[in-house]
Nucleic acid binder design. Structure first.
Length: 680
RNA sequence: GGCGAGAUAGCUCAGCCGGUUAGAGCGCAGCACUCAUAAUGCUGAGGUCGGGGAUUCGAGCUCCCCUCUCGCUACCA
């Protein structure tokens, strides 16, 4: 194993369009914080960087919706997020933001250097454009009806109701959110990172890191091996919120948010250490580690490394321990649906109970697969593990020592068996943390407390005191050493608990490091202890019920959203009679239907139009079984330009009507008419 | 459709290179104890390892087929 001189640890930059929730904490910030605290306990040189990610389209949309500027949005959430991290003891060396001056300069210079060295390809592409406000539209600025679930407010890239990924062309009745106009395609110039050409480098890079977590390595391989492999990716966007592209002729364009955001790790390092940052980013003996959620894998394992390699001056990540997702009470966590436990709200209901949440989230962290947070489970883990095992051990030892020895550490020595045991536990925890298995590490910490309880049950000092005070002292001495050792051992996971333990023992926490774990003289003989105080309180049913009720209320409020009330389909622009007259609408009967191979949503229909039969491919497979629609008479747009779909030529279109419940229905003549009859 | 990950006890999850009786915690049952926040300790019951087939002396693990869940990605009125 390489002997690293220092560590640069990054935690994914949270997007500044909402507060931080338990999913963020479990997926990224707790693991990184545990790791960093562990490194610091080992006296390693470590820089822990994070900050708000404040550019990109969703923020501009949110700003528009709330009638404020994007800057106001990010200012608001930056403060909330920053405070949550402070409150939960996430020990960043710096938490800054991508709207900072330093970041603008850094990202701009980064791009400029690559541009000057010809690392980008200039390319014209067709983008959607809003002719009324004279602006290109990102996918998110285009709204229409989701073809899958009928949600009339689906975005051009995704329907948030049913989660389907979309492209703007998928939407029924697409319109610009800026003006309501129908978007048109227009040419625009952007700069692309030729990932296709860089693929060999990326592949070589990944090949050196087959030890990465299976979910991470597998995902990367999938990007390289799917289809034609990596594709060029645009690093600029037509948008007015972000970092201007520092190139002549690029007015009105900004850096792609995924280009600028990871550079934020570097910018924030510069902000903290203006004169000393380079060794954390350019020295081969620095170990760079990115903690992220699984949605960020491609950016941190492929695109950002590609950027760094092409730029040429920087080291790339040695590991990217991405977690999967945390679900909440049976559902995906969602900021927009308000299905989340927000950190700032948690602290209102559970004042000073940061470690309780840190404990539970670490215990159930989605390290290898998606996992689930439920309030009942939270209660059980806090009460049965934290309170009963750890809190109770500390309390009973303190009380016994106070009772039998007036709160003085008995004058004796510890036993070798105990030293051996704790040292072994330290090694287990160490190894688990080094391998990013924090769940396992934490459970070994608890096992130390468990061992203390076993010791007490076995030796029964409350009986022994009646006959042998000296031996009683030995037992309590050992238990006190266990507690002190736990103080160091639990610090990465439960920093607030650790502090309480050291306060109670009247010891200076900073005097100890990781290698002291195992020592039998952490609390010296004769030392006066502080007052016993409970580390944790039991969580009562009422508190939990209130939290569950709160979530149920959220669900009840968001459930009737398929309200077709205000679901007035947005009116399209007015057309003249001549426009209408251009349509050749005819009645036709479906005489055959079959599923199109290798396409989930397509049906190949054969339609009898009287004078001829047509093949029409229609994306309705999700709504109808092929055999069920044969014989239906439908309304056909007969003069629509033909188009190839999945290799089948489609000549015409079937008119469909959205129903109130989000399904589709054929528009049919009420009474059967001759196939081929005009409809007008 | 392609790709990736997953499915193991009632619940949450381990299970390294295929090797004897598949593990842990919680929950449940019983016993012990009373210093402790009715906390702790000990013991026990609970599993066709998603389904089917193959390779092997031997498969939770390898190979093939299938089902379901999550994610990425493609096609789509």
């Amino acid at each position: 194993m390489k002997n690293w001189k220092r560590y640069t640890v990054t935690a994914a930059l949270p997007y500044a369009n909402g507060p931080v929730h338990i999913g963020h904490l479990a997926g990224c910030y707790l693991p990184s914080d545990i790791y960093v605290r562990y490194l610091r306990a080992n006296k390693r040189d470590v820089l822990f960087v994070c900050g708000s990610d404040e550019h990109g389209v969703p923020i501009t949309i949110k700003a528009r919706k709330e009638g404020v500027s994007p800057q106001q949005i990010v200012d608001k959430y930056h403060e909330i997020m920053k405070q949550s991290f402070v409150d939960f003891g996430i020990s960043f060396s710096i938490y800054s933001r991508t709207s900072s001056k330093t970041h603008h300069e850094t990202a701009s210079a980064f791009f400029k250097k690559m541009y000057d060295e010809g690392k980008f390809i200039e390319q014209e592409t067709d983008q959607y454009y809003d002719e009324e406000v004279n602006q290109f539209l990102a996918d998110r600025y285009i709204v229409g009806t989701c073809p899958k679930c009928g949600n009339e407010n689906a975005y051009g890239d995704q329907c948030e109701k049913c989660g389907t990924s979309l492209s703007p062309t998928d939407l029924i009745n697409p319109h610009s959110t800026l003006s309501g106009a129908k978007p048109v395609l227009r040419k625009t110039k952007n700069w692309f990172l030729p990932l296709d050409k860089l693929q060999p480098h990326i592949k070589a890079y990944l090949d050196e890191h087959k030890d990465w977590k299976v979910n991470v390595y597998g995902q990367c391989k999938s990007w390289l091996e799917t289809g034609d492999g990596l594709q060029p990716r645009s690093m600029t966007r037509d948008l007015d919120w972000g970092i201007p592209v520092p190139v002549a002729g690029a007015e009105g364009k900004v850096l792609y948010v995924w280009f600028d955001a990871p550079i934020g790790y570097i910018s924030n390092s510069i902000e903290l250490l203006p004169n000393d940052w380079e060794k954390y980013w350019k020295d081969k003996d620095t170990r760079l580690i990115h903690f992220i959620g699984k949605d960020n894998i491609v950016f941190h394992c492929i695109i950002f490394p590609a950027m760094l390699m092409e730029h040429g001056e920087f080291i790339v990540a040695d590991n990217v321990p991405a977690n999967e997702f945390l679900n909440l009470e049976g559902d995906k966590i969602s900021t927009s649906r308000n299905w989340a436990v927000w950190l700032h709200e948690y602290l209102e209901a559970f004042k000073d109970k940061q470690d309780e949440l840190r404990y539970v989230l670490t215990s159930i962290a989605p390290e290898t697969k998606d996992s689930e947070f439920t309030w009942k489970d939270y209660q059980a883990r806090v009460n049965n593990e934290l309170v009963a095992i750890l809190g109770n051990l500390v309390n009973r030892v303190m009380v016994l020592t106070d009772k039998y020895f007036e709160g003085n550490v008995p004058d004796t020595k510890g036993c070798d068996d105990l030293q051996k045991f704790i040292t072994e536990q330290r090694e287990k925890v160490t190894q688990s943390i080094e391998e990013f298995r924090f769940r396992e590490a934490l459970s070994e910490v608890i096992n130390v407390a468990r061992h203390g309880n076993q010791l007490l049950s076995e030796k029964e000092p409350w009986k022994l005191i009646k006959t042998d005070k000296e031996q009683t002292g030995v037992i309590l001495y050992d238990c006190l050493q266990i507690i002190a050792n736990l103080g160091i051992l639990c610090e990465p996971f439960l920093p607030f608990t650790s502090k309480k333990i050291f306060d109670m023992l009247q010891l200076d926490a900073t005097a100890f490091s990781w290698k002291d774990i195992g020592r039998q003289d952490l609390v010296p003989a004769g030392h006066q202890l502080g007052k016993a105080a409970l580390l944790y309180q039991k969580v009562e049913d009422e508190i939990i019920d209130a939290q569950i009720a709160k979530l149920q209320q959220t669900k009840a409020m968001s459930a009737p959203t398929p309200e077709p009330v205000k679901a007035e389909p947005t009116a399209k622009a007015e057309i003249t009679y001549d426009d209408f007259a251009k349509l050749d609408l005819r009645a036709g009967t479906i005489i055959a239907a079959e599923k199109v191979e290798k396409a989930d949503k397509l049906l190949k229909l054969t339609v009898d139009l009287g004078s001829e039969t047509r093949t029409i491919v229609s994306g309705i497979a999700a709504h109808f079984a092929p055999e069920a629609i044969v014989g239906f008479q439908v309304c056909v747009v007969a003069n629509l330009a033909s188009r190839k779909l999945r290799g089948i030529e489609s000549k015409g279109m079937i008119l469909m009507a959205d129903t109130a419940d989000g399904k589709l229905e054929f528009v049919s003549p009420k009474n059967l008419t001759a196939n081929g009859s005009m409809i007008s």
